[in-house]
C-alpha cells in the first residue's frame, strides 16, 4: 500500500471513529458533572462522579437490575444461538423447495410491528402465569427470523465437502452440526452472540409490559425511571446510561477478534 492511500485510510477511520465516539464521550463527561452543569453545556470533566453514583444507588436498585439484565440476556443468548443456528443450518444444508417456502413464511413473522402483536402475546403469557419470570422475558425473542436467516446465509459458505467427508467417516448429522459446523462458523457465532446479547440487554417494550414487579426490573427500565421526574438529574442519568452501556461494549470488545479475525483455517 502506498503512503498516500494509507493516510487516506487511517484518516477515514479516525474521522468515523471520532464521529462515533464523540457523543459517548459527552455522556462520560456528563456523568462526572452536576446536573445543572450538564444543562449548561459544560464540556469538561467534573468532580461529581462519586456524588452521582451515590445518588443513583440511593434512588434505584442498580445492582438488582444489573443482575436481572445479565441473567435474562445470557440465558436468552445461549439458548437462542443453539435453536436458531440449528434451524439456519437445517434450512440451508438440507434445503429444498418446501424448506425455502417455510423460510419465507418465517420471515413474515418479523414484519408485523411488535405493538400489534403485543396485546395478544400478553394475554397468552398472563394466562400461562409467565409474568415476572425469566421464561416470560426470553420466550418471545428466543427464536428470531433474523438469527435463523443469518445462520442460513452463512451456512451457504460452509463447504459441502466437509459434510460428505464426515458422513463417510460415519458421523451422525447432529454430530456434524456440533463438531464441524459450530467450530468452523466461530465468526458467525461470535457476531450473532454480540448482536443477540445487545438486543436482549436493550429490550424495553416487552419487559416493561410483563415485568410488573419491582424485583424483576432490568437496567433499561432503571434508566427510563430516571427520565420520568419533574426534574431530571442529567448527571445521574448519564451515569446510569454509562453503566447500562458498558456490558454490551465489553462483550463486543471481547468478541470482536473472534468474528473479525476468525480463523477459517479448518476449512480447506
Amino acid at each position: 500500500m502506498t503512503k498516500g492511500k494509507k493516510i487516506l485510510m487511517y484518516g477515514f477511520l479516525i474521522i468515523m471513529s471520532i464521529i462515533s465516539v464523540f457523543p459517548l464521550l459527552w455522556m462520560v463527561i456528563a456523568a462526572t458533572n452536576k446536573s445543572v452543569d450538564v444543562t449548561r453545556g459544560r464540556l469538561l470533566p467534573g468532580g461529581y462522579l462519586i456524588e452521582n453514583f451515590k445518588n443513583l444507588i440511593a434512588a434505584q436498585d442498580v445492582g438488582g437490575a444489573m443482575i436481572n439484565s445479565f441473567k435474562y440476556s445470557v440465558i436468552l443468548t445461549v439458548i437462542s444461538l443453539v435453536i436458531c443456528s440449528l434451524a439456519g443450518y437445517g434450512f440451508e444444508i438440507y434445503h429444498d423447495k418446501a424448506k425455502d417456502a417455510v423460510m419465507s413464511v418465517i420471515l413474515l413473522a418479523m414484519m408485523v410491528p411488535f405493538v400489534a402483536t403485543m396485546i395478544p402475546l400478553f394475554r397468552m403469557f398472563s394466562s400461562a402465569h409467565l409474568l415476572n419470570s425469566t421464561l416470560g422475558f426470553i420466550l418471545p425473542t428466543l427464536s428470531t427470523p433474523f438469527l435463523i436467516m443469518m445462520f442460513r446465509q452463512s451456512a451457504r459458505s460452509f463447504p459441502h465437502d466437509i459434510i460428505e467427508a464426515a458422513r463417510i467417516d460415519g458421523l451422525s448429522e447432529i454430530r456434524i452440526f456440533f463438531q464441524m459446523f459450530i467450530p468452523t462458523m466461530r465468526s458467525t457465532y461470535a457476531a450473532a452472540m454480540t448482536i443477540t446479547f445487545m438486543n436482549a440487554w436493550n429490550n424495553y417494550l416487552w419487559p416493561k409490559v410483563i415485568m410488573t414487579d419491582a424485583k424483576s426490573q432490568t437496567m433499561p427500565m432503571v434508566v427510563a425511571n430516571l427520565t420520568q421526574g419533574y426534574v431530571t438529574d442529567y448527571g445521574m442519568l448519564m451515569l446510569a446510561v454509562l453503566i447500562c452501556t458498558l456490558p454490551t461494549a465489553i462483550v463486543f470488545f471481547c468478541l470482536q477478534k473472534s468474528f473479525a479475525e476468525g480463523i477459517t483455517g479448518a476449512v480447506k
Partner: peptide, 13 residues
C-alpha cells in the same frame, strides 16, 4: 469497537 459503540448506547442517552 469505536465504530460499533453507538448501537450499544441506550436509546435514552
Amino acid at each position: 469497537t469505536m465504530i460499533f459503540l453507538p448501537c450499544a448506547t441506550s436509546l435514552v442517552a
